[in-house]
């Protein structure tokens, strides 16, 4: 059984916890996020020929008062960088986080999740922005924690990238 540690990263209230809540198993409550700053869950999946367990470290969202603890990233094989599609500022936050993560753990696979895609009316991320991300070589997906769209794909994509690496 292959296990991979992945981290959920992103600004405060981008929906990281909601994203994993529907797709993973955990024995820990959300209060860990506010106390220890991390909540660990597991996602069993099959990527290609491999059965794989993703150990998901859902890190407390970053805001002006709280920075992510980089020590939690140690040993991560990949990460999901979550952005709130209705708040463009969260993209800047994601870029900032990605920079720090790269410094801390090096080049590990990651996928950007443009979350809350169900809220089309409030969607604020322009196609240009998405193209910019693509130009950076970042893989991104539109997801909705509410409808579940894209979430499985995001995990699968990351798993593929990690197993190839």
């Amino acid at each position: 059984m292959v296990q991979k540690k992945i981290c959920m990263l992103g600004a405060f209230a981008v929906g990281k916890t909601s994203l994993v809540a529907r797709f993973v198993e955990s024995i820990f409550s959300d209060t860990y996020l506010t106390t220890v700053g991390v909540k660990i869950s597991r996602k069993a999946m099959r990527a290609g020929r491999h059965r794989c367990h993703l150990i998901v470290w859902d890190l407390a969202g970053e805001d002006e008062f709280l920075q992510i603890r980089l020590s939690y990233l140690r040993g991560a094989a990949g990460y999901l960088l979550v952005v709130d599609g209705t708040r463009p500022a969260t993209i800047d936050a994601a870029i900032s986080i990605q920079k720090r993560v790269q410094e801390a753990v090096g080049d590990v696979p990651f996928v950007v999740l443009l979350n809350k895609s169900d809220l089309q009316a409030e969607w604020e991320v322009s196609d240009d922005t998405m193209l910019e991300l693509a130009d950076k070589g970042w893989n991104w997906l539109k997801t909705s924690a509410r409808t579940g769209i894209g979430v499985e794909d995001a995990f699968l994509l990351l798993a593929d990238m990690m197993l190839e690496a």
Partner: peptide, 19 residues
């Protein structure tokens, strides 16, 4: 069954304490 989660959380707590 949940030993992998406990293992992760134990590591997280250690990191938390260290930090």
């Amino acid at each position: 069954r949940d030993s992998d989660l406990v293992s992760g959380m134990l590591t997280a707590i250690q990191s938390f304490i260290q930090d």
